[in-house]
Design a binder for these strands. Structure first.
Length: 438
DNA sequence: TTCTGAAGTCTGTGATACAT
DNA sequence: ATGTATCACAGACTTCAGAA
């Protein structure tokens, strides 16, 4: 008899292939299968554990939580989900490459609610399984097409169903293969236009997908020295050992290649893809220290546009920075210090160093204005929730988070303890404080 | 000795990752 | 939405090596 597990073990889609399912998608599908929201599943997994790993429960997989990199939260989640489902999930994220490879800036951050997918993959999934799954590849930066079908990934534009009934907010399904608005499995309510992918986009997608297909045993060969060996092999074989030529062809800084080869730091995935394609080399072989020729071509500009960083060295002088801060201070709506810095294109450190007193004054002014705004939002929410509470009580209805929000029409973000949340909490916990004497 | 181009090093920036 | 900490990366600066 197989050992019992906390959750149904759901098979990871495309395991061992370039089409491997992402951890995010798996969490969503497991939640759906257990008739729970992802929020409920996460709070259950993070509640208490005797595994010695500490992590405070995240309320949901947020837009900024890079669940597929080797972040602490990601590691805890994958460990507990492996225990709970009894299956190996290491290949559902990029964390297995953490160490030799830098995993920052590798995830394609989606705008809230928007997802990217290959319409043909989704269609094919429906022939084999109940709910289509999301590929890890689709969530990576620089990947804009499906290497399997050669079409551009479709960015969801929302439910395309007309006139149909929308699912209530609190019971909307959250899975990449299901429309959250109308519940259409395979997102058949949308009519994506299939666009043939260009050769450079295809080369990038192919290159990264081969890396995702590496088995756990092959991943163990991806070490710091092996990656450096691979980089050196490409520079030697394709650019006669000339780092300047290699950097120029790949559209990356020459200093980067020097740093990779001389210092034992981890290397970003995106610039490695750039170098491998520029050198006509197989990236997955490069990661294990070998040079294997690949039939790929792209110019430095094409690579830089798709994978490179937009880096601009600021030319602002100290005087300009001081003037900029003075102007910002005189504004009625003072910007945050960080925003003031980015508006001028300088770092916060540089701006603070140029005018420490002005910097402090701006930060203080912005803080005061923010507190006033936050206070206003709290008072408004308090009065709205108190009105909703008395209306509910007069009808003999229960007063709780859900009914207060539904009746007042004012939604409070439960994940963030903002002014609305605090107002709702205060109304529920101690309403007598805010009741007017009759 | 001077020039030139390549290689090595340093420093500030961009982009997270996470907390508040 | 904003603040803070972090670190790879871009490009400026410096050093080195070989040729004239």
């Amino acid at each position: 008899m197989s050992p019992r597990t906390l959750l149904f073990p759901m098979a990871v889609g495309g395991l061992g292939t370039a089409q491997v399912e992402s951890l995010r998608s798996l969490v969503e599908r497991i939640s759906l299968a257990h008739h729970r929201t992802t929020r409920q599943l996460l709070s259950y997994l993070f509640r208490s554990s005797s595994d010695g790993m500490s992590a405070s429960a995240p309320s949901e997989i947020t837009r900024t939580w890079c669940v597929h990199t080797d972040s602490e939260l990601g590691r805890v989640l994958i460990h507990r989900l492996q225990v709970a489902t009894g299956q190996a999930l290491a290949t559902t994220t990029l964390a297995r490459f953490g160490g030799p490879l830098s995993l920052s800036n590798v995830i394609h951050l989606k705008k809230s609610g928007k997802v990217r997918y290959c319409p043909i993959c989704l269609e094919n999934d429906l022939l084999e399984q109940e709910i289509p799954y999301g590929r890890l590849l689709w969530e990576l930066r620089g990947v804009s097409c499906c290497p399997l079908h050669g079409v551009q990934l479709h960015s969801s534009t929302g439910c395309g169903g007309v006139g149909g009934k929308r699912i209530a907010l609190q019971s909307r399904p959250r899975a990449i293969g299901v429309c959250p608005d109308c519940g259409s499995v395979g997102r058949r309510c949308e009519t994506p236009i299939l666009i043939k992918a260009g050769s450079v986009d295809l080369a990038i997608a192919h290159s990264i997908s081969k890396v995702l297909a590496l088995s756990e045993e092959e991943c163990e060969l991806v070490t710091g020295p092996a990656v450096r060996e691979g980089i050196k092999a490409v520079v030697d074989c394709r650019f006669e050992g000339n780092t300047i030529a290699a950097a120029r062809a790949a559209g990356i800084g020459r200093g980067s290649i020097c740093t990779w080869l001389k210092k034992h730091t981890s290397v970003g995935l995106a610039p490695l893809v750039q170098l491998s394609i520029a050198g006509g080399a197989d990236l997955s072989a490069m990661l294990v220290g070998r040079f294997v020729s690949a039939d790929v071509h792209a110019t430095a500009v094409e690579l830089k546009n798709r994978l490179g960083r937009t880096y601009l060295r600021s030319s602002a002088t100290a005087d300009e920075m001081r003037q900029h801060l003075s102007n910002a201070l005189e504004c009625d709506e003072a910007p945050s210090f960080k925003r003031a810095a980015s508006a001028l294109g300088v770092s916060t450190e540089a701006l603070r160093a140029a005018a420490p007193v002005l910097a402090k004054a701006l930060a203080a002014k912005h803080r005061v204005q923010r507190e006033i705004r936050s206070g206003d939002a709290y008072s408004h929410a308090l009065s709205v929730y108190m009105q909703a509470r008395s209306a509910l009580l007069s009808r003999g209805k229960a007063v709780n988070q859900k009914s207060l929000q539904l009746h007042s029409g004012l939604k409070a973000s439960l994940g963030r303890h903002g002014p609305r949340y605090r107002a709702m909490h205060d109304v529920l916990s101690d309403p007598a404080r805010f009741e007017l004497p009759s």
